[in-house]
Design a protein around this nucleic acid. Structure first.
Lengths: 123, 123
DNA sequence: ATAGGTGCAAACAGTTTGCATGTAT
DNA sequence: ATACATGCAAACTGTTTGCACCTAT
């Protein structure tokens, strides 16, 4: 994706300004407010490219659709509410230290933490 | 799934003895060695039931197919190799303490850690 | 005997791909 | 001018469902 097209700008901006991980169809929905006729395939093509260039990262949780969020080097901790299924990005309080010891031979380059429980709204 | 059928026994045993998270088609493949004609739908039906009864848990990682593993109260830390894509279940060395602080109002009931990097075979 | 489980095939949802058209460079 | 991106629709993959048959209770 080397060209600075209208679609590229809008899709990137939607993900960057969301503040939380979005599903492909959420991204499509939001970006469509600026570009009618926007095809869902274009979303997937940009997501793939953005993931490969490490600007966007996927966040998966069993039983939920895959989501994607902008990488700012901070949000590696997520919280899923067991009641309302909302997914929150929390500040990384672990200071880039992997929160677990690993056996010899494993070389840890990055990590992700998923917490689950009850969010403030669900109590 | 209240009945103790041949399929239930084999599927449960495959997951329990695998020692690592398996994809639905891996489970199907292994269980088919004992039961020919085993339908993939039966795998999905049992996986759903086992997840609901908390005996099995899903492990998702972006870009990879969903996997399922037996819950033994220990394996909450996983390691994905960026080179060969194998997924390892590591011993939980965090002693059930969530490896991150959360804002007020969030009630953490459980957590999962995903590490990624190079495994001994690739590294 | 009967409620529940199974296999099969069809339906479904999410994602990817082929192709003709459009557009940034 | 040309190589790349887009929209559309068709193809594909993984998962779920409807239904007739089977089996553990």
């Amino acid at each position: 994706m080397k060209r600075n097209t209208k679609q590229a700008k809008v899709i990137t901006e939607v993900i960057r300004s969301a503040g939380r991980p979005l599903t492909p169809s959420e991204i499509h929905e939001f970006a469509s407010q600026n570009i009618s006729q926007l095809g869902i395939a274009t979303i997937y093509r940009h997501l793939k490219a953005l993931c490969e260039s490490m600007q966007v990262v996927g966040v998966d949780y069993p039983g939920q659709p895959p989501r994607y969020e902008w990488v700012d080097g901070k949000d590696k901790v997520h919280f899923t509410c067991r009641s309302c299924d909302k997914l929150y990005a929390l500040a990384d309080t672990t200071k880039n230290t992997p929160p677990a010891k690993v056996p010899k031979g494993f070389n840890v380059q990055g990590f992700e933490v998923m917490l689950y429980g009850m969010c403030p709204e669900c109590g």
